[in-house]
């Protein structure tokens, strides 16, 4: 199954580093299809509903089915006919929904299994450990360097291992379509590939206390060379620029706000 899932996704045009299709692309392509079909189905069904509501509006002089015996007070319930039509539309809607889900299931397998496959293929992967706390994020690199700004090279698979120091948080970078729960006492994983050197903001997506609204972190996507240079300069020291470069400000704001 995993292989076929990967294969299915691979049929679509590949982009990103080393033929890795980023989750952002996967998400966007599925989202567009859902949005298109959803709008179409919604419009058709609602239009049909309104059409019937209008067509069979009450008119004193015109009964659309004069022979029909209408419901009477105190009768025991029974079904109105049209069962065949009901099942036809039900079947149709079920087919649409099921095929959409089956289709996306392949991409789910792709997203779930890609990091392991990439590791097997020997693709270069950057592992970053993410720790949430009230109210900021720490990023720890394989060399032990810890910082409050997530710096990653463009066009490389980044594998995040996410956890929390205190309460339930959720780490997400919306533009890169990466998101993972940060749960105290356990880790979760998520991965992404950033294509262009630019800056993003990571947010917390789970209500975690007073500072939740301000709990964000800078994400800097760098040219690979620039990244390597920066990474070499960190030299595994956790001291310089640690803890919460970005979190500091909001942190003190909050402490102030917390005072009576």
């Amino acid at each position: 199954m995993p292989v076929s899932g990967g294969g299915l996704a691979a049929e679509v045009a590949l982009a990103g580093a080393g033929g890795i299709r980023a989750p952002a692309e996967v998400f966007n392509s599925i989202f567009v299809v859902f949005l298109g079909l959803g709008t179409l189905v919604g419009t058709v069904v609602i239009a049909y509903t309104l059409y019937n509501a209008y067509k069979y509006r009450y008119r004193e002089d015109r009964d659309p089915a004069p022979d029909l015996d209408r419901p009477e007070l105190g009768e025991l319930p029974e079904s109105g006919g049209k069962g065949k039509k009901l099942f036809l539309s039900f079947g149709l809607s079920a087919v649409i929904v099921l095929s959409l889900i089956v289709w996306t299931y392949g991409t789910l397998l792709y997203v779930e299994n890609r990091p392991a496959e990439a590791a097997q293929e020997g693709t270069e992967i950057l592992d970053v450990h993410v720790e949430g706390y009230q109210f900021g994020w720490n990023f720890t690199y394989p060399n032990g360097h810890t910082t409050g700004t997530l710096r990653v090279p463009a066009n490389r698979m980044v594998n995040l291992t996410v956890t929390s120091r205190d309460v339930f948080h959720n780490f997400g970078i919306p533009e890169l379509r990466v998101k993972s729960d940060a749960i105290p006492g356990q880790t979760t994983n998520a991965w992404f590939v950033a294509e262009e050197p630019t800056e993003y903001t990571a947010n917390c997506y789970e209500l975690c206390g007073r500072g939740h609204s301000y709990m964000d972190a800078e994400v800097v996507v760098m040219e690979p060379e620039a990244f390597e240079e920066w990474y070499a300069s960190t030299n595994g020291t956790a001291a310089n620029g640690t803890a919460s470069e970005s979190g500091d400000e909001s942190h003190s704001d909050l402490e102030e706000a917390a005072r009576p």
Partner: peptide, 21 residues
């Protein structure tokens, strides 16, 4: 109907990942 259709989006796990929160 609108609520139901937008719910199907959430049923697709890959989309749900990003819609979460």
């Amino acid at each position: 109907i609108v609520g139901g259709i937008t719910g199907v989006f959430l049923g697709a796990v890959v989309l749900d990942y990003e819609f979460r929160g």
